[in-house]
Write a protein that binds this DNA or RNA. Structure first.
Lengths: 192, 192, 192, 192
DNA sequence: TATGAATGAGAATTCATTCAT
DNA sequence: TATGAATGAATTCTCATTCAT
């Protein structure tokens, strides 16, 4: 026998993600997905109960990847401003390099596949935890405006999300000048 | 009778919009739409060629409404900071009060219904023109950072979009304190 | 619009019944059923949730028809032996003329479609009530063996069922001689 | 090793039989069968060409077992009535103890798997031969009604089949009293 | 126009069978 | 042989669209 290939789950989820970016949830067909993933239709059903579960699983898969390493190469003893700059850049890159992620999530929350009870926003908050922590730390050091940190995270992410969207849409990478301006607005906006 | 017809078109489009906010394009079924609009399935097809056209029409309908008056109650001779504060608030309110709009557009661009040639981004830019103008004006007065105004618009709208999303999601209106903080971050971010 | 045709339910159920007699539950396909009933596949799904419910409904439909008029043309003041002879003949004819019924029920009780909780055997007992009553009446008149009437019904029906099966299988009607013998065995068997 | 193979064939056939009693031919899935038999799906296909052949084989397997010794412990020189009583009891026990047999045959004859040319009814007649002989013997001795013995066999078996069904369904064994009544009806019915 | 039952192409899902290990 | 993952044809079921009333 062929051993149940864990890679295949990744393959199918990854393919689904790419396709949803292209055709939307509305356009995802199981047979197309199978074809594009290079497996038989039935194979998809070995790894996933049905279309519903596949898409639910997709969400969990993303949360796993997304949470990834926001503060990957940030050393502990850098000044806070630098830390925030780095984490913001990581967040931006994540968004730009994985446009499928945002695309999927946008669709997911307004679809018949999403049920409020999915451990949804918990996961999202978890993903933003590193940014949150950094801002709170900044408040403790009186470097950051003393206000609801939740709202600050919202504003910061809003800026970065939008910049990512534009970069994806125009297919142009962020230039150093654009990045400096972006961070300048971000930092001046939140610093106390 | 003509007005009755127009009413029905509006009824169907409005219903579709509300439903898409809930279930997404992926979940919109013509029969459900008819039921929720209180007409027969066949009736929908009297006013719209097919689902494609209905959704295309929806887009045009939105473009019409959306371009709404961002600088409605802003008098010409107020200081720029106040003008920007007012226009930002208008933009935020627009977003919060018409959650269907954003929801639909999000879905639309990643769906099989969208064809690149739709006069899409033109309209979007048109809608943001007032904000753009104000920022350029601010740069002329040396009040606003001297940088690509396009990017500034992006950053400003990003913040406001995200705040709107949170308000919609949590079903809580923006408190005065939240608004003040939001604008403070926005303004400190862009002022020179 | 075309008004929802109650006849169509009958048409579909009747067609299904005939087909099951021919190909068994194992061989019943929704598309074949639709074709043979002269409707579109989708139409079947207007009247029945899914294949499961269709078959469940079939059972109820049968119970309704089957219970029919076992003692149809039996006048109240005939001697008991004649009454029993007539009711037995009715029962036999029912079985022979509606071979689909037996065929379906045989299949149904051993199928994934049957769940114990179906108001099953109640209905069956109800159908046999007239025979039961007559036998009890006979016991009161000391004409019938004084023993568990339930078991007597079982034995009587067993004989008649088997005779019906043979008649159906050989495609030959019961001759008068065969009927006289059958009833002679039946009557001599149960009379006291 | 040869005996091991034979064991596996028996195992698969026996398992299939039990499953068909439960879910019918309609519900028998090769993968379920394999699982319940404790082998891999592929293994079933080592011993049987395909599902068709498996079921055909099942039929032959039954024909082999079923023809079991109806007049096993009946000594030649007992009175005819006793012989008939014993053979009837054997027949009844056979039915009750091997409910799978009847279940399978019921399903088989109305399935796409059955082809008229299967040596079906021949075998059945063969199985009933001992009863037939006894009845003819009884007629020769003027103990049994002088009528078509075929029909008499039908009636006798009909009674016994039905009693067996009830016993299987209610999961209760036949009590001595029930058996005495059953045989009384049987015997009084056929004796001259 | 308005209705909603009917249609049937097309999408989702199942399951007998194959095949690499 | 034995295994069970993989296959894809066959089947169930959905839903945009038509049409008789």
């Amino acid at each position: 026998m062929r051993s149940k290939d864990e890679t295949k789950v990744q393959l199918i989820l990854g393919t689904a993600l790419k396709m949803i970016e292209r055709v939307g949830l509305a356009g995802l067909k199981m047979s197309d997905l199978a074809k594009e993933a290079g497996v038989a239709t039935g194979t998809v059903y070995i790894y996933f109960e049905d279309k519903n579960q596949l898409i639910r699983e997709l969400y969990l898969y993303l949360m796993h990847y997304n949470t990834a390493d926001l503060n990957q190469p940030i050393s502990e003893n850098e000044p806070l401003k630098i830390k925030i700059k780095k984490i913001a850049r990581n967040y931006l890159n994540n968004n730009i390099n994985n446009p499928e992620h945002g695309a999927f999530l946008e669709q997911y929350f307004r679809s018949p596949y999403f049920h409020e009870d999915d451990a949804t926003h918990q996961a999202e908050e978890l993903a933003l935890q590193p940014i949150y922590s950094l801002l709170v730390e900044g408040q403790r050091q009186s470097l950051i405006k003393d206000a609801d940190p939740e709202l600050l995270v919202t504003l910061v992410c809003g800026m970065l999300n939008e910049v990512a969207k534009v970069s994806i849409y125009t297919q142009k990478p962020i230039t150093p000048a654009e990045w400096e301006l972006t961070f300048s607005v971000l930092w001046d906006g939140i610093r106390s």
